[in-house]
Computed example of a mutant assay.
Amino acid sequence: MSDLAGGPHGTPFTDVERVVAGAEPRTLSLRAGARLDQVAMGHTDGGRVSHGGTGGTERTLTLEAGEHLVSATLSTGRRDGRTRVFHAEFTTDRGRTLSGGTPTSDTVSFTAPEGWRVAGFHGRSGDEVDKLGVVYTPIP
């Protein structure tokens, strides 16, 4: 698992159990407006996990056969006295990206080790994503 970006608010979540069970990512969705409202991942087995609220506009990236999510860049900021994730950008090994929210100067990037991919999330959320990190798995 990667480190986390964001603040201590919201309810903790993790996709570790789903990832360990062999779930393969198929889609990545972000809901965002001024900040990151939700992250979601659909898997090849038809399951879907989501974290955060229902605000903002949803954008989805469908992975092509053999394509893998390999990095995440996250920006954080403060709203109503709480640190939250304001912007997220995910990149595949084919250079395709999905992003949403408002970038800030407080940015961190997480990159999967060689031969690994982003397969899930961990962090904290409520109506928005308060803290976010990624879960890596080996590429089969």
Rank of each mutant, 00 (worst) to 15 (best):
P12L: 05
G77P: 02
A34F: 08
S75W: 14
G56F: 06
S2T: 15
G46M: 02
K131H: 13
G77M: 07
R18I: 03
D127K: 09
F13G: 02
E24H: 06
Y136H: 15
T54W: 13
A88E: 04
S109Q: 11
D80R: 10
K131Q: 15
A5Y: 00
A23Y: 00
V16M: 10
E24C: 02
T11N: 12
R82A: 06
E128I: 14
A72V: 15
T27L: 06
D130F: 15
W116K: 04
T76K: 15
L61T: 04
T102E: 09
E64Y: 00
H51C: 13
A112K: 11
D45V: 00
T107M: 10
D80V: 03
M1R: 09
H43R: 06
T62R: 13
D15G: 06
H51Y: 07
E67H: 02
S105M: 05
E24N: 03
T14D: 08
A112S: 14
V49L: 10
D130P: 01
T11A: 10
L98K: 06
S29D: 03
G7C: 03
D106G: 03
T27M: 05
I139A: 11
L74G: 03
W116N: 05
V16P: 00
P25Q: 11
Y136A: 13
D15Q: 06
A88T: 10
V108P: 00
T102H: 05
M41G: 03
H51L: 13
D37Q: 02
R82K: 12
G81I: 01
G6M: 10
P140M: 01
A112G: 07
M1H: 12
A72Q: 07
T73P: 04
G115L: 11
P113Q: 10
G42Q: 08
R96T: 03
L63F: 08
G33I: 08
D45M: 01
A23H: 04
T62V: 14
E89T: 13
R124D: 02
R79V: 11
G53H: 05
F110K: 12
S105H: 13
H51K: 07
A5Q: 11
P25I: 13
T57K: 10
E128M: 07
V70Y: 01
G6W: 12
V85G: 01
V20L: 07
G115A: 11
F86C: 05
F90H: 05
D130R: 05
G101I: 12
E114D: 15
D45E: 02
P140Y: 03
G33V: 00
I139H: 04
P8V: 09
G22D: 07
S75M: 08
T92D: 14
E128G: 10
P113T: 06
T107K: 09
V16H: 08
G100H: 09
T104H: 05
D15C: 04
D106A: 15
H87M: 00
V20W: 01
S29Y: 09
R35K: 08
R117H: 11
G123L: 08
E17C: 04
T14C: 11
R35G: 00
Y136I: 13
H122L: 11
